[in-house]
Each structure stands twice: as C-alpha cells, then as structure tokens.
Simulated scan of single mutants.
Amino acid sequence: MCLVCIAFASWVLKSTNPDSGDTWKAVLLANISALSAIRYLRRRDATGEKPLRQTPSV
C-alpha cells in the first residue's frame, strides 16, 4: 500500500501543469500521500513486524 501512495504522489507531481493556479493542490495531495506512506512504514517497524526487505549482516 505504501508503494501505491508513493507512486501516486510521483504521478501527481509529474502530471501537474506548473503554469496552472491549482498546482498547490497537487503538491498538497502528493505530500499527504508520501507522509501517509512514511507513517505506515514507521508504524510497521514499531510493532516489530518483519521489514519489507532484510539486509544481510556482515
């Protein structure tokens, strides 16, 4: 789900016309989506769930 939010935020920013007066709405929507994804990942880490990707220890 968090990847969907990040992808959506990226798509919104790429598809926005910078000359229009409604650019701030797209930026706000993208930021909310990105913050939601970050909060989800932090909450998942705090609960002790298995991380999305495990790195091998050296």
Rank of each mutant, 00 (worst) to 15 (best):
Y40M: 12
S33D: 08
V12Q: 00
D45P: 00
N31W: 05
L52C: 08
G48Q: 04
F8P: 01
K50V: 12
L52F: 14
I38V: 07
P56G: 10
Q54R: 11
N31L: 15
A46I: 05
Q54E: 15
L52Q: 07
A46W: 10
V27Y: 15
Q54I: 05
S36G: 13
D45W: 10
K25Y: 11
V12F: 00
K50H: 06
V12C: 00
Y40F: 15
A7I: 00
K14W: 07
S20H: 03
V12S: 02
A30P: 11
L3F: 04
D45S: 12
V12A: 01
D45R: 09
G48K: 06
G21E: 05
L13H: 02
T55C: 13
S36F: 06
K25W: 13
L29A: 13
S33T: 01
S20I: 01
P51G: 01
Q54G: 00
L29R: 07
G21P: 01
V4L: 15
M1W: 08
V58T: 07
P18H: 02
W24R: 03
L29M: 07
L41V: 11
M1I: 04
Q54H: 03
L35T: 05
G21S: 12
E49S: 11
V4C: 05
L29F: 04
V4G: 02
D22C: 08
L41R: 09
L52T: 01
R53E: 11
L35F: 14
I38H: 08
G48F: 14
A9S: 15
R39E: 09
R53V: 15
P51N: 04
D22E: 06
D19F: 09
N17A: 11
S20M: 03
L28K: 12
K25S: 10
S57V: 04
T55Y: 05
V58E: 06
T23C: 11
A46H: 10
F8E: 10
A34D: 07
W11H: 14
S36P: 02
K14P: 00
T16G: 02
S10A: 12
S33N: 15
V4Q: 10
T23H: 11
W24H: 12
L28Q: 08
L35V: 07
C5S: 13
V58H: 09
L52H: 07
F8D: 08
I38L: 15
L41A: 12
G48T: 02
R42K: 14
S36C: 13
D19C: 01
R39G: 12
P56Q: 13
V4F: 05
S57T: 03
L41Q: 09
V4A: 15
E49T: 04
K25P: 04
L28S: 11
F8W: 08
A9R: 03
L13W: 03
I6D: 06
S36N: 07
E49P: 03
R42V: 11
M1L: 09
S33C: 15
L28R: 12
P18K: 04
S36R: 09
A9N: 03
